[in-house]
Each structure stands twice: as structure tokens, then as C-alpha cells.
Amino acid sequence: MLIERYIYLAIALFCIGIVGVLARRNAIIIFMCIELMLNAVNLLLVAFSKMHHVAGVAKSASAGIDGQLFVFFIMVVAAAEVSVGLAIIVMMYRNTHSVDVNFLNRLKH
């Protein structure tokens, strides 16, 4: 499969995530769109790792394996991020009784 098609797919998924972050006000949906963007990047990293494997397999048998390990570490960081982020959102819900991000404007005043 041509690498361009994977790049187009990842760009499309990433932009859908951007639109979600910009157009929604629910903090949880915004958080889910961030996960969507992370996954678009993960998909692209795996596709590039396979591409470099094809190019460098003559030199070493494990060429391109770094890309897949980066994806593994991104998943680790995303799991940690979700646990802390959801705790913050629960905290915000307790204080304002809403998940609307427009209530979080105290820095403006």
C-alpha cells in the first residue's frame, strides 16, 4: 500500500480531531478528540515504521522497529494522561456542576 494513502488517512483523522476540539464545549468530548488525534499519529508512525523496514531490511533485520516502540510509549503516556485528565474533569464538575469549558474563564478576569 502506498505510504501517501496512510498519510492522507492520518491527516483526515487528525483534522477531524482538531474540528472536535474547536467546535465542542463538553470537556469530555474535547478530551476524546485529543485521543483521536493521538491515534492518528500512532497509525502514521506504524505505517512509517513498515516503510523504513522495507528500505532498511538489507542492513539490519529489525530496521524500523523504533517506530512501533514509540507507539507503545505514546500509548503508555496517553493512559497516564487520561487518568489524570479525567480526575481533573471530575473535580471541575464538582465545583461548577457542569462540564462546559466556557465556565473555565477565570484567567480572563
Partner: peptide, 30 residues
């Protein structure tokens, strides 16, 4: 705004040298 980002990224990809590179499906053991 999201559509503009999509446009910019696709236009940048048109200039990039990725033509003919493949990510092989179903092969490789990495």
C-alpha cells in the same frame, strides 16, 4: 479552521518526496 489545516497539510504533502514509497501489508516480522 480544521478544513484550512487539512488543506495546508495536503498541499504540503503534494510537495513532499514520498512518491512510490510503500508500507507493505501482511509481510515483515518487526
Amino acid at each position: 479552521a480544521g478544513g484550512c489545516l487539512l488543506l495546508v497539510l495536503v498541499a504540503a504533502l503534494k510537495q513532499a518526496e514520498v512518491k512510490g514509497k510503500v508500507a507493505e501489508l501482511g509481510t515483515g516480522d518487526i
